[in-house]
Protein backbone atom coordinates (compact mmCIF):
# COMPACT_ATOMS: atom_id res chain seq x y z
CA UNK A 1 0.00 0.00 0.00
CA UNK A 2 2.83 2.39 0.84
CA UNK A 3 4.14 2.17 -2.71
CA UNK A 4 1.13 4.11 -3.89
CA UNK A 5 1.70 7.13 -1.73
CA UNK A 6 5.42 7.64 -2.22
CA UNK A 7 5.74 10.61 -4.59
CA UNK A 8 6.92 9.58 -8.02
CA UNK A 9 9.91 11.14 -9.73
CA UNK A 10 8.15 11.84 -13.01
CA UNK A 11 6.89 10.18 -16.14
CA UNK A 12 3.47 8.81 -16.89
CA UNK A 13 1.60 6.42 -14.65
CA UNK A 14 -0.33 3.57 -16.20
CA UNK A 15 -1.79 2.08 -12.99
CA UNK A 16 -5.37 2.76 -14.03
CA UNK A 17 -4.95 1.58 -17.61
CA UNK A 18 -5.95 -2.05 -17.01
CA UNK A 19 -8.90 -1.07 -14.90
CA UNK A 20 -10.16 1.40 -17.49
CA UNK A 21 -9.91 -1.26 -20.19
CA UNK A 22 -11.93 -3.52 -17.92
CA UNK A 23 -14.54 -0.78 -17.41
CA UNK A 24 -14.67 -0.23 -21.15
CA UNK A 25 -15.31 -3.94 -21.68
CA UNK A 26 -18.21 -3.62 -19.24
CA UNK A 27 -19.74 -1.08 -21.61
CA UNK A 28 -18.61 2.22 -20.14
CA UNK A 29 -17.60 4.77 -22.73
CA UNK A 30 -14.62 7.00 -22.01
CA UNK A 31 -15.57 10.60 -21.23
CA UNK A 32 -14.56 13.52 -23.42
CA UNK A 33 -11.50 15.62 -22.74
CA UNK A 34 -11.24 19.36 -23.22
CA UNK A 35 -10.16 20.23 -26.73
CA UNK A 36 -8.95 23.58 -27.87
CA UNK A 37 -11.02 23.34 -31.09
CA UNK A 38 -8.88 26.14 -32.23
CA UNK A 39 -7.84 28.76 -34.72
CA UNK A 40 -4.14 29.43 -34.27
CA UNK A 41 -2.10 31.51 -36.64
CA UNK A 42 1.52 32.55 -37.03
CA UNK A 43 3.17 34.79 -39.61
CA UNK A 44 6.62 36.22 -40.27
CA UNK A 45 7.00 39.90 -41.03
CA UNK A 46 9.91 42.17 -41.86
CA UNK A 47 11.73 41.87 -38.58
CA UNK A 48 9.77 39.55 -36.39
CA UNK A 49 7.00 37.04 -36.00
CA UNK A 50 3.36 37.36 -34.89
CA UNK A 51 1.44 34.55 -33.20
CA UNK A 52 -2.33 34.69 -32.80
CA UNK A 53 -5.00 32.50 -31.23
CA UNK A 54 -8.66 32.50 -30.33
CA UNK A 55 -9.68 31.84 -26.70
CA UNK A 56 -12.37 29.14 -26.79
CA UNK A 57 -11.97 25.71 -25.20
CA UNK A 58 -14.57 23.05 -25.95
CA UNK A 59 -15.64 19.70 -24.50
CA UNK A 60 -17.80 18.05 -27.13
CA UNK A 61 -20.26 20.78 -28.11
CA UNK A 62 -20.00 22.61 -24.76
CA UNK A 63 -17.90 25.76 -24.47
CA UNK A 64 -15.77 24.83 -21.46
CA UNK A 65 -13.83 28.06 -21.23
CA UNK A 66 -14.49 31.37 -22.96
CA UNK A 67 -11.11 32.91 -22.26
CA UNK A 68 -8.36 30.30 -22.34
CA UNK A 69 -4.80 31.33 -23.20
CA UNK A 70 -3.52 29.21 -26.07
CA UNK A 71 -0.21 30.99 -26.64
CA UNK A 72 2.25 29.48 -24.19
CA UNK A 73 5.56 30.86 -23.05
CA UNK A 74 8.50 28.70 -24.06
CA UNK A 75 11.36 31.15 -23.56
CA UNK A 76 11.57 34.97 -23.49
CA UNK A 77 12.19 34.90 -27.25
CA UNK A 78 10.04 31.88 -28.14
CA UNK A 79 6.28 31.36 -27.82
CA UNK A 80 4.05 28.54 -28.92
CA UNK A 81 0.40 28.27 -30.01
CA UNK A 82 -1.31 24.97 -29.21
CA UNK A 83 -4.21 23.15 -30.82
CA UNK A 84 -5.70 19.74 -30.05
CA UNK A 85 -6.12 18.17 -26.61
CA UNK A 86 -5.84 21.15 -24.27
CA UNK A 87 -4.09 19.32 -21.44
CA UNK A 88 -1.49 17.93 -23.86
CA UNK A 89 -0.60 21.30 -25.35
CA UNK A 90 -0.36 22.96 -21.94
CA UNK A 91 1.74 20.26 -20.28
CA UNK A 92 3.98 19.67 -23.29
CA UNK A 93 4.86 23.34 -23.64
CA UNK A 94 5.30 23.74 -19.87
CA UNK A 95 7.67 20.76 -19.78
CA UNK A 96 9.87 22.01 -22.62
CA UNK A 97 9.76 25.55 -21.28
CA UNK A 98 11.15 24.38 -17.94
CA UNK A 99 13.88 22.32 -19.59
CA UNK A 100 14.92 25.34 -21.67
CA UNK A 101 14.99 27.55 -18.60
CA UNK A 102 17.40 25.13 -16.92
CA UNK A 103 19.43 25.00 -20.11
CA UNK A 104 19.66 28.82 -20.19
CA UNK A 105 20.76 28.90 -16.56
CA UNK A 106 23.47 26.34 -17.35
CA UNK A 107 24.77 27.95 -20.54
CA UNK A 108 23.97 31.59 -19.83
CA UNK A 109 22.82 32.05 -23.41
CA UNK A 110 19.58 32.87 -25.11
CA UNK A 111 17.53 29.82 -26.07
CA UNK A 112 17.74 28.81 -29.71
CA UNK A 113 14.59 28.27 -31.70
CA UNK A 114 16.01 25.01 -32.97
CA UNK A 115 16.47 23.65 -29.44
CA UNK A 116 12.83 24.27 -28.61
CA UNK A 117 11.64 22.83 -31.91
CA UNK A 118 13.78 19.71 -31.63
CA UNK A 119 12.87 19.07 -28.01
CA UNK A 120 9.16 19.41 -28.76
CA UNK A 121 9.22 17.21 -31.84
CA UNK A 122 11.33 14.54 -30.17
CA UNK A 123 8.95 14.44 -27.22
CA UNK A 124 5.95 14.13 -29.52
CA UNK A 125 7.62 11.54 -31.75
CA UNK A 126 8.56 9.47 -28.72
CA UNK A 127 4.89 9.23 -27.83
CA UNK A 128 3.91 8.27 -31.38
CA UNK A 129 1.06 10.75 -31.75
CA UNK A 130 -0.66 9.80 -28.50
CA UNK A 131 0.09 13.26 -27.12
CA UNK A 132 -2.45 15.21 -29.12
CA UNK A 133 -0.61 18.50 -29.41
CA UNK A 134 -0.49 20.40 -32.70
CA UNK A 135 1.78 23.39 -32.25
CA UNK A 136 2.86 26.57 -34.00
CA UNK A 137 6.23 27.62 -32.68
CA UNK A 138 7.45 31.15 -33.26
CA UNK A 139 10.65 32.80 -32.11
CA UNK A 140 13.51 35.17 -32.77
CA UNK A 141 17.09 34.08 -32.17
CA UNK A 142 20.51 34.74 -33.71
CA UNK A 143 19.20 33.46 -37.04
CA UNK A 144 16.40 36.03 -37.08
CA UNK A 145 12.65 35.34 -36.95
CA UNK A 146 11.50 31.74 -37.42
CA UNK A 147 8.14 30.04 -37.58
CA UNK A 148 7.42 26.32 -37.57
CA UNK A 149 4.52 23.99 -37.07
CA UNK A 150 4.83 20.69 -35.26
CA UNK A 151 2.31 17.89 -35.69
CA UNK A 152 1.30 15.45 -32.92
CA UNK A 153 3.35 12.67 -34.55
CA UNK A 154 6.52 14.74 -34.32
CA UNK A 155 7.02 16.13 -37.80
CA UNK A 156 7.80 19.80 -38.26
CA UNK A 157 8.14 22.27 -41.09
CA UNK A 158 9.22 25.89 -41.39
CA UNK A 159 6.91 28.26 -43.26
CA UNK A 160 6.51 32.03 -43.54
CA UNK A 161 2.87 31.82 -42.46
CA UNK A 162 1.01 28.98 -40.77
CA UNK A 163 -2.40 28.22 -39.38
CA UNK A 164 -3.62 25.13 -37.52
CA UNK A 165 -6.69 23.85 -35.74
CA UNK A 166 -10.31 23.45 -36.79
CA UNK A 167 -10.49 27.09 -37.87
CA UNK A 168 -7.41 26.85 -40.07
CA UNK A 169 -9.50 26.50 -43.23
CA UNK A 170 -11.11 29.86 -42.59
CA UNK A 171 -7.90 31.51 -41.45
CA UNK A 172 -5.73 30.29 -44.30
CA UNK A 173 -7.81 32.18 -46.86
CA UNK A 174 -6.96 35.45 -45.12
CA UNK A 175 -3.27 34.55 -44.98
CA UNK A 176 -3.15 33.43 -48.61
CA UNK A 177 -4.71 36.74 -49.68
CA UNK A 178 -2.76 39.15 -47.54
CA UNK A 179 0.66 37.73 -46.72
CA UNK A 180 3.61 39.17 -48.64
CA UNK A 181 7.31 39.23 -48.02
CA UNK A 182 8.60 41.94 -45.67
CA UNK A 183 5.24 42.91 -44.22
CA UNK A 184 5.24 45.89 -41.88
CA UNK A 185 4.72 45.10 -38.20
CA UNK A 186 1.24 46.62 -37.95
CA UNK A 187 0.14 45.03 -41.24
CA UNK A 188 1.22 41.63 -39.98
CA UNK A 189 -0.64 42.15 -36.69
CA UNK A 190 -3.79 43.19 -38.53
CA UNK A 191 -3.55 40.24 -40.89
CA UNK A 192 -3.13 37.71 -38.07
CA UNK A 193 -5.97 39.32 -36.14
CA UNK A 194 -8.24 39.10 -39.18
CA UNK A 195 -7.22 35.49 -39.82
CA UNK A 196 -8.07 34.49 -36.24
CA UNK A 197 -11.34 36.40 -36.47
CA UNK A 198 -12.17 34.48 -39.64
CA UNK A 199 -11.85 31.35 -37.52
CA UNK A 200 -13.84 32.83 -34.63
CA UNK A 201 -16.79 33.71 -36.87
CA UNK A 202 -16.74 30.80 -39.32
CA UNK A 203 -15.60 27.85 -37.21
CA UNK A 204 -17.80 26.62 -34.37
CA UNK A 205 -14.84 25.25 -32.44
CA UNK A 206 -13.24 28.69 -32.21
CA UNK A 207 -14.61 31.77 -30.52
CA UNK A 208 -14.35 34.69 -28.10
CA UNK A 209 -11.28 36.93 -28.29
CA UNK A 210 -8.00 37.27 -30.17
CA UNK A 211 -4.73 37.00 -28.25
CA UNK A 212 -1.51 37.98 -29.99
CA UNK A 213 2.19 37.75 -29.24
CA UNK A 214 4.70 39.76 -31.29
CA UNK A 215 8.31 38.61 -31.08
CA UNK A 216 11.07 40.83 -32.41
CA UNK A 217 14.78 41.16 -31.78
CA UNK A 218 15.24 41.55 -28.01
CA UNK A 219 11.58 42.46 -27.63
CA UNK A 220 8.51 40.35 -27.05
CA UNK A 221 5.11 41.93 -26.70
CA UNK A 222 2.08 40.02 -25.46
CA UNK A 223 -1.17 41.57 -26.68
CA UNK A 224 -3.91 39.87 -24.65
CA UNK A 225 -7.42 40.47 -25.90
CA UNK A 226 -6.06 42.49 -28.83
CA UNK A 227 -9.47 42.21 -30.35
CA UNK A 228 -12.79 41.39 -28.68
CA UNK A 229 -15.06 40.89 -31.69
CA UNK A 230 -17.84 39.20 -29.71
CA UNK A 231 -18.47 41.38 -26.65
CA UNK A 232 -20.75 40.09 -23.91
CA UNK A 233 -23.77 42.35 -23.58
CA UNK A 234 -24.50 42.98 -19.92
CA UNK A 235 -27.96 42.13 -18.63
CA UNK A 236 -30.28 45.11 -18.34
CA UNK A 237 -31.77 43.80 -15.09
CA UNK A 238 -30.54 41.24 -12.60
CA UNK A 239 -31.92 37.96 -11.32
CA UNK A 240 -30.71 38.39 -7.75
CA UNK A 241 -32.56 36.08 -5.37
CA UNK A 242 -33.99 37.56 -2.18
CA UNK A 243 -32.11 36.43 0.92
CA UNK A 244 -33.94 33.54 2.52
CA UNK A 245 -35.09 32.04 -0.80
CA UNK A 246 -33.37 28.74 -0.14
CA UNK A 247 -34.69 26.46 2.60
CA UNK A 248 -31.95 25.24 4.91
CA UNK A 249 -31.99 22.03 6.94
CA UNK A 250 -28.78 22.50 8.87
CA UNK A 251 -26.11 25.15 9.27
CA UNK A 252 -22.64 24.98 10.73
CA UNK A 253 -20.25 27.90 10.87
CA UNK A 254 -16.54 27.48 11.32
CA UNK A 255 -14.90 30.72 12.44
CA UNK A 256 -11.39 31.15 11.16
CA UNK A 257 -8.64 32.62 13.26
CA UNK A 258 -7.24 35.69 11.52
CA UNK A 259 -3.50 35.77 12.08
CA UNK A 260 -1.90 39.18 11.76
CA UNK A 261 1.77 39.91 11.98
CA UNK A 262 2.60 41.55 15.29
CA UNK A 263 5.23 44.16 15.99
CA UNK A 264 8.73 43.00 15.28
CA UNK A 265 10.59 41.96 18.40
CA UNK A 266 12.96 44.60 19.73
CA UNK A 267 16.41 43.11 19.41
CA UNK A 268 18.44 46.29 19.62
Amino acid sequence: METNIIPRKGGFNFDNYKRNLFLEQKGLTLPKVTKTGTTIVGALFKDGVVLGADTRATGGSIVQDKDIIKISYIAPNIYCCGAGTAADTLFTTALISSQLELHRLTTGRQSRFNSAETMLKQLLFRHQGHIGAALILGGYDINGPVLAHIYPHGSSEHHPYITMGSGSLAAVSVLETRWTKNLERQDAIDMVKDAVEAGIFNDLGSGSNVNLVVIEKNKTESLREYSKPTPHHPKNCDYKYKRGTTAILKESIKDLVVVTDGEAMDIS
Binding site: M1, N16, K18, R19
Partner: peptide, 13 residues
Protein backbone atom coordinates in the same frame (compact mmCIF):
# COMPACT_ATOMS: atom_id res chain seq x y z
CA UNK B 1 -12.15 0.01 0.11
CA UNK B 2 -8.59 0.98 -0.61
CA UNK B 3 -7.53 -2.65 -1.09
CA UNK B 4 -10.43 -3.22 -3.46
CA UNK B 5 -9.74 -0.05 -5.47
CA UNK B 6 -6.10 -1.10 -5.68
CA UNK B 7 -6.99 -4.62 -6.79
CA UNK B 8 -9.10 -3.20 -9.59
CA UNK B 9 -5.92 -1.82 -11.14
CA UNK B 10 -4.30 -5.25 -11.24
CA UNK B 11 -4.32 -7.94 -13.89
CA UNK B 12 -7.06 -9.90 -12.18
CA UNK B 13 -9.34 -7.69 -10.11
Amino acid sequence: RRELAQSLRSRKP
